[in-house]
Simulated scan of single mutants.
Amino acid sequence: MRVDEQIGGGAGRPEIAGSASALVAASDLSPACAPELIAEVEAARSYRLRARSANTLRAYASDWRQFQDWCWGRGLEPLPALPEVVATYLASLSRAGRADSTVTRHLAAITWQHRHDGLPPPTARDTHQLIADTLSGIRREQRARPTRKKAAIGAKDLAAMIGKADGLGTRAVRDRAILALGLAAALRRSELVALQLADVQLVEQGLTVYVRHSKTDQEGEGATIAVPVGKVLRPVAHLNAWLAIRGGEPGPLFTRIGTKGEYTAEAMSDRSVARLVKRYARLQGLDPAMMAGHSLRAGFLTEAARTRASPAKMQEVSRHKSLKVLLGYVRSAERFDEHAGAGFL
């Protein structure tokens, strides 16, 4: 079974029933106990699938398909894959300009697929450390390259971008709400598209947003974020305008808009958020190549640091596990404050 076939559960599929039956046959249980064991085996498989988030499994599915296509296009066997094949594939990804984090995720997807199919992963059979050395070399090379981090979008620029989403059309109203809430709640793009209607509650001071799980919360403990009404970006007003169109049906908070501009109940993809940000950045005269979905989250942190918000209060919204990353935004915003050369330069 492939990674993409795992998403959405697994009870009742033939391969699950087969593995359960094999376990029953190998045991000394009486036939009367067999149904209970089968149910327990299915529960164990279900729990294993939940060890990875749905977003991670989707990414693994896409990465695995790309690896298969690469192998088949070169007459190589993807399963089981030789360590030499995997090392060469990782090198090809780096040559294509993929970030080392993306290359590492592709390796994780290949490892996941082998283990799921009951095969030792290539890394376990790599006696000469070909994969590890290749990955280390990729990381070392990429560290030596000049990097262009995605820029943060400040509140002034975002307000202007929101203004570019002009009119009362369904798409414009939705886009204004996404841009405003994305920055106001310091949300990752994956978190934005994962929000359900029930995750947003209007309160007297503004609204609360419940993030069920995130990149740094794989166990799904969840976090509630407070979003003030606001005077510049007005996230609550923009969200209310969208809700008036969306209606009160349960489901994704932000949905895809049809080709004719009509409302649909289909959830957006996280990539569509990145495209949305780039589109309005371009309209505002900003460099879209320097913008991404993360620019909204980075914008909140940069603005919060610039206005002297405390790191503790910033962390309440951003949910950073490590203050080291968070303080990077603070240092960036304060770089010219009380500069050592201000008195003589």
Score class of each variant (00 low, 15 high):
residue 195 L to T: 03
residue 154 G to C: 07
residue 65 R to H: 07
residue 329 Y to R: 07
residue 164 K to L: 13
residue 187 L to T: 03
residue 229 V to F: 03
residue 187 L to A: 05
residue 320 H to C: 02
residue 173 V to T: 10
residue 56 T to L: 15
residue 227 V to E: 02
residue 103 V to M: 11
residue 285 G to H: 06
residue 265 A to L: 08
residue 323 L to S: 07
residue 93 L to Y: 06
residue 227 V to P: 01
residue 180 A to G: 00
residue 182 G to L: 05
residue 162 I to R: 02
residue 98 R to V: 02
residue 193 V to I: 11
residue 126 D to M: 09
residue 88 T to K: 03
residue 307 T to H: 12
residue 184 A to R: 01
residue 115 R to I: 08
residue 200 V to F: 09
residue 152 A to S: 12
residue 21 S to T: 15
residue 15 E to Y: 15
residue 298 A to V: 09
residue 157 D to K: 05
residue 188 R to E: 02
residue 250 P to V: 10
residue 142 Q to F: 05
residue 297 R to L: 12
residue 295 S to Q: 03
residue 200 V to R: 10
residue 314 M to W: 00
residue 32 A to S: 13
residue 129 Q to K: 02
residue 154 G to I: 08
residue 96 A to K: 11
residue 238 H to S: 08
residue 343 G to R: 11
residue 35 P to R: 04
residue 39 A to S: 13
residue 90 L to Q: 08
residue 225 I to F: 02
residue 67 F to T: 01
residue 331 R to A: 15
residue 321 K to M: 05
residue 142 Q to W: 04
residue 186 A to D: 07
residue 126 D to K: 04
residue 338 E to N: 08
residue 161 M to E: 00
residue 65 R to Q: 09
residue 70 W to Y: 15
residue 303 E to V: 01
residue 292 A to F: 00
residue 293 G to L: 04
residue 245 I to T: 04
residue 112 W to E: 14
residue 76 L to A: 06
residue 65 R to E: 10
residue 90 L to N: 06
residue 339 H to R: 07
residue 200 V to N: 07
residue 308 R to T: 06
residue 26 A to D: 14
residue 167 G to N: 05
residue 249 E to H: 07
residue 276 L to I: 00
residue 54 A to Q: 14
residue 144 A to V: 00
residue 121 P to T: 04
residue 285 G to V: 13
residue 338 E to W: 00
residue 25 A to C: 11
residue 89 Y to P: 01
residue 196 Q to Y: 00
residue 170 T to D: 09
residue 16 I to N: 09
residue 250 P to C: 09
residue 197 L to C: 12
residue 22 A to V: 15
residue 192 L to W: 02
residue 306 R to A: 13
residue 253 L to R: 04
residue 323 L to G: 05
residue 135 L to N: 08
residue 313 K to P: 00
residue 218 Q to V: 10
residue 66 Q to S: 15
residue 287 D to W: 01
residue 97 G to Q: 05
residue 134 T to Q: 11
residue 243 L to V: 08
residue 36 E to F: 08
residue 193 V to Q: 05
residue 252 P to N: 03
residue 206 G to T: 12
residue 283 L to C: 14
residue 61 A to L: 09
residue 170 T to C: 11
residue 220 G to F: 02
residue 300 F to M: 13
residue 318 S to K: 08
residue 173 V to M: 09
residue 192 L to Y: 01
residue 50 R to L: 13
residue 321 K to V: 14
residue 26 A to V: 09
residue 52 R to A: 14
